[in-house]
Design a protein around this nucleic acid. Structure first.
Lengths: 246, 246
DNA sequence: CGCCAAGTTGACAAGTCTCAATGTAAGTGG
DNA sequence: CCACTTACATTGAGACTTGTCAACTTGGCG
């Protein structure tokens, strides 16, 4: 958008929301607000760095804050009564967390890599919402978007084979990464552990790994590193994602 | 039940939200509102009957109305690009539909049996929300509750065996039915087709049917009719729901 | 450089899907 | 009111995907 990529990425382009300037006001949620409202929100936001693997939110804890991820990646999960956890989603820069949680958080959140987030106490949020209706609307859209994501996930988990799930997820991540303004030619950044990805897709780790290997053999993807995946043939992936068999 | 199947429809306790008076203002969403607000909402609500199998909402259509189910049952589903549909949920009396959909509906809705619903145009809703903050809050809670349901469904679809899924779902329906004020001893009312239930649980119909048969053989449930299920041993079902194996 | 966590791959068993036949309840028309 | 028709549910046999267990390889990090 703003042609001036003033901020030379110190290292990894993913660290700074995709080559985009780090300025708070350039994140999508805030971009959609009117100037006065945006200024008020930016002023209220508290920036905070976090370490790799840091626990950011605990399921069941009082949901008194709203978060926006500025840099890094976060894994969301629910704990089942006894069995191991179920990963319900991932957050990337620009994503909002906590809007869809009423009094208590519905899931836990852990940092995949170190990064930064901006937080806003809900009390303050309510006040701002009274003054600026478009903020309320923006948050409402954030909630419905979370809901839509969960619904799509139901589709993945409810009626897809392993290959379909992986193909669908890769395209989903690709779409999100491009929405963050990343170069479409750049490889996907998937810093989470394979285990988390497997849980997210309702698969066991070996099954996920095998599926990846298969896609690599067939030339649909390539993996420059453990945390990066290049989509070589989006069309084939899209076909695989929708068409049921083979 | 009674030896004489007095099949008089009006006497079906499920038809009227569980033996509860049919008055609009007695439904949970409205009960939570302050008197003046409730009165205003009740006045704005439009009651409407619908037939069995009637299409009530189409995925992708403009979401200009909010619905509350008064009587009957509704199945929600998403259509996959080519393969058959995925059922994402069921609505029973008192449930709200449409709050979590922003500009367009995220799913379609079809009547399982005939019933009644109350609707409210979103435009009117916005006006009321401005006048009555607690209405806005009630709707917000409705959305987060929808979201929580979808999240729980992720748990079911992502990491459970067929037996666990069925046991979990039965207990879930049981909880909801009791929340509607139904007698805990009364059998579960499950008027949807087995096919829909199977899709909801991410299973094929024969697998669901087999699982039901197994539970019946083991004495955990009994099925007085196709649309009714009695939970004979909730404790065992709860154990099966959580404990992974066997 | 070596260790340990994480990822990959193999062999086998188990659970679920597919296809198909049978049984049953509901709905329709004579 | 009964026979007929249709839709839905149940059950069976076999194939196949996926899960499980375990060995092996890789790669990050001290």
């Amino acid at each position: 958008m703003s042609g001036t990529k003033s901020e030379t990425p110190p290292s990894n382009p993913h660290r700074s929301a995709g080559g985009r300037p780090d300025k708070l006001s350039d994140f999508p949620l805030l971009r959609s607000l009117q100037d006065r409202c945006r200024a008020a929100v930016v002023k209220a936001l508290q920036e905070r760095p976090f370490d790799k693997h840091a626990l950011l939110v605990s399921e069941g804890a009082e949901a008194d804050e709203l978060f926006m991820l500025l840099e890094g990646a976060i894994v969301l999960w629910k704990t089942r009564p006894d069995r191991h956890a179920q990963v319900t989603g991932f957050l990337f820069p620009g994503d909002v967390m906590g809007a869809a949680n009423d009094s208590r958080y519905l899931y836990s959140a852990r940092a995949v890599v170190r990064g930064r987030l901006a937080s806003l106490p809900k009390r303050q949020l309510a006040d701002l919402g009274d003054s600026y209706p478009d903020l309320r609307r923006a948050l409402y859209r954030s909630v419905t978007s979370d809901f839509a994501l969960a619904q799509d996930q139901l589709l993945i988990l409810g009626a897809m084979s392993a290959k379909e799930r992986v193909a669908t997820a890769l395209l989903q991540f690709d779409r999100r990464q491009r929405a963050r303004g990343m170069d479409p030619a750049a490889p996907l950044w998937l810093p989470m552990r394979r285990m988390d990805l497997a849980s997210y897709l309702g698969l066991e780790l070996p099954t996920l790994s095998r599926t990846f290997s298969r896609l690599r053999q067939d030339g649909l993807i390539s993996c420059p590193s453990t945390t990066e995946v290049s989509l070589r043939d989006r069309a084939a992936l899209a076909r695989m994602s929708c068409e049921a068999l083979e």
